[in-house]
Design a protein around this nucleic acid. Structure first.
Lengths: 214, 214
DNA sequence: TGTTATACTTAACATCGTTAAGCGAAATGA
DNA sequence: TCATTTCGCTTAACGATGTTAAGTATAACA
């Protein structure tokens, strides 16, 4: 069955060619500004050919993002496995997340900055790499709580709060490049450090402040 | 010149009619899922009529957002003028911001969650209500620094960090409605409280952590 | 009453994502 | 080796989008 194998290899090659072309265009010009026809043109196939390899445009994008986010998760797992103190790990995972987002703004946008709900894509995205990226953060937070560095808060809640911080600064820097940012790098540090400090033990009184309900 | 006046009044009325129809549809179904034709249909005019009153679809959306965000800013100014302690003000302004975003997700999305850069819309957005909403946050942060509640950090940086937090939780809650959130309300509080605590004085040692550079 | 300006519409353009139908070449069976 | 089936891809088309150009009534004005 050599011929069958070869055909399959060729199919896989074309699939990759499509992915590569699409990634190039998406990264360069953004998802919405790239048409299926342009992708097809780039690889000298008819537009409809793409639909033989991917369900639709969103599906194509999804696979590209998964590919890219795998790198983020891999790096995160490496950090998590290190033998440093948990607090440093949390911050480094956070930084890794932020820097990844800034390095791949178009990928980041589509996985974290657009609402993809009530479509049936629901479960697909739940099991995605984006989700696993959050789980990574969560693991490191749990370590901090277990070792007594963070105070005894709900790990899920604390992770969500930290996620809010890292996602917040990442998405703002992406969405508002014209904003007169002062000290981007230091702001990133400040977000991470402040949030961690706020979650840490020792400091009980944080001013006059009860939870500050309106 | 009564006739001239009347005509002008009628023009203004139609303009508002367009805005109202568009807002309804945008809020209900989201900007991208609403076509100019549908807006026109709703008010029984031809699609092209809209272009006599607004430059294009984005322009239409912009005016709607400004309208809505004015409310946020007004409320924020009211809070800022209150005679409570600065820390409470920061938190209430933060909460106000978050709650506003969750109440008007479609407006929030277009002003804060999409990248509107290198178009010439640049300056327009810089002077927008969204921008003023940030300035509000900044004012309250400056108060906290001046009164010694927050430690001596750059006010711009601290504001950006706080903004990251509130924007982060807001945009995530909007973009990821299917995420298995635990304790949304408490998470909001935790973000605000932790960030403020981290920016506050008293606590020097926040664990073993230097800025955590990778 | 005739002219001009105003408010709006009809028709069309270029483009989009996507589907249905068809075509030629390669693989398969005899 | 020849007929048939399968595979990979394309051509053509559908219905929709935002937007523009050209045209048409009606109202205002002289």
């Amino acid at each position: 069955m050599t011929s069958r194998d070869r055909r399959e290899r060729e199919k896989e090659a074309l699939r990759q060619e499509i992915l590569d072309a699409a990634r190039d265009l998406f990264v360069q010009e953004g998802y919405e500004n790239v048409s299926m026809r342009r992708i097809a043109e780039k690889i000298d196939y008819s537009p409809t050919t793409i639909y033989l390899y991917f369900e639709d445009k969103a599906d194509l994008l999804f696979h590209i993002c998964e590919e890219t986010f795998t790198k983020l998760v891999t790096k995160g797992e490496k950090i998590l496995a290190e033998k440093t103190d948990p607090l440093t790990k949390v911050k480094r995972i956070g930084r890794n997340y932020i820097e990844f987002g800034l390095k791949h703004p178009n990928h980041y946008k589509v996985t974290f900055m657009v609402q993809h709900s009530h479509d049936e894509l629901k479960e697909r995205y739940e099991n995605s790499m984006g989700h696993r990226a959050f789980e990574l953060l969560r693991s490191s937070v749990e370590e901090c709580i277990k070792t007594g560095i963070f105070r005894k808060v709900d790990p899920g809640m604390a992770s969500q709060a930290l996620w809010a911080g890292v996602h917040g600064i990442t998405s703002l820097l992406i969405a508002k490049p014209l904003f007169p940012w002062v000290e981007k790098q230091k702001t990133i540090d400040l977000v991470l450090d402040s949030l961690c400090a706020g979650l840490s033990k020792d400091k009980k009184k944080s001013g006059a402040a009860k939870p500050a309900r309106a």
